[in-house]
Write a protein that binds this DNA or RNA. Sequence first.
DNA 1: CGAGCGATTGAACCAGGTCAAACGGGGTGG
DNA 2: CCACCCCGTTTGACCTGGTTCAATCGCTCG
Lengths: 199, 199
Amino acid sequence: MIDSADMPISAQDARRFKSGQRIHDAGAEGPAWRVSSGVVRFHLIDESGSEPLFAGLAVGGEIVGVEALLFGRYSYRATALTDCELSPWPGGATTERDSLLHALTLAEHRAARVVALRSGQAIERIRRLIRLLLPQASAVARAELPPLRDIAEITALTAETVSRTLSGLRRQKVIEPEQPRCGRGHKSCLVALDLLAAA
Amino acid sequence: MIDSADMPISAQDARRFKSGQRIHDAGAEGPAWRVSSGVVRFHLIDESGSEPLFAGLAVGGEIVGVEALLFGRYSYRATALTDCELSPWPGGATTERDSLLHALTLAEHRAARVVALRSGQAIERIRRLIRLLLPQASAVARAELPPLRDIAEITALTAETVSRTLSGLRRQKVIEPEQPRCGRGHKSCLVALDLLAAA
DNA sequence: CGAGCGATTGAACCAGGTCAAACGGGGTGG
DNA sequence: CCACCCCGTTTGACCTGGTTCAATCGCTCG
């Protein structure tokens, strides 16, 4: 009612997270969320105290944290891979049944997506990930890349390999430097899609 | 009514598929299914005519082919990785809402599972896959492995590497030979779990 | 300015890929 | 019944893409 004029439906209590920010932690309580934009990354917290394992990605439209609706607690840690916006789910006006089925359909694609990000040579994996990070569709687009160690974790490569691969892409003018080196605030180079189609 | 005496609830029209058998094809019409036992493998049929790409696995309890409920057609090809049993979904007595939420929760784990199968060294991947193929829980268990090329595809290795790795495991008595070499009917070696815990 | 952290770059190494050959069992046809 | 073929598996030799280890750079923040 109050401020929902130009927002997507039922986004009144949307929450925004900046790249790298924690969304929820494994074992914590909270609602399920619908991703309205951006990319969310999941971690499986290993019981044996070792560091969290990459466990998946969710993109716009998908639901995260459903298990909390059934069991009361999240199973995974979720962090924002890119800046993103989430709203509590289910929410608003959609028919619940269709909403659920749609969510389930999207969830089926999640596995295929991460598989693709770990298939083929380093350069193919990274191109696919960059594509995923770009705002959909548009033939030429820009996006800010996450820290190399995150890219490495998702693609099952090392940060060094990612760096070398990105350098190659930069040399071929597939992506633009724009911030070649980084300091504390993790921001990496921007990307131009152009040639990326040939993945 | 004829043969449903000792079957699980709502499994009247369960269908059994033998390892390697096609369950449904991308673009075909049909119901969604619930996997009651066994492991189902998905393929994404590449539009450009190349061979199908591995796109995920579903295990007991999960729902496959939901997209057909919304769009009328399957998005993936599904084949039986192990002998398995499916029944049309939704079916029977469960509260539909809970059933959907549960399905959605399981779907969230699918991505984590395939990621794990493509993480770490060859031997770890294969151990994880074997674990997945074994009937749950039981400390010592047996299962028949799929053809090496299937294992290779799932773990993002080559059939040669899989063969060498399995030979190693056989040498270490982690798995048992039982059918070391194979002919036309693809049946591979059987497995004993015992040492598999140390994955 | 100095510390800290991520990115970059180089050099050596190795796990796994690639190519090729041989094997073995089941199925098929004679 | 036997010979042959097909196909998945096994094994070897070699090669390479990516990892590992380590040094350096650059930016940001204190």
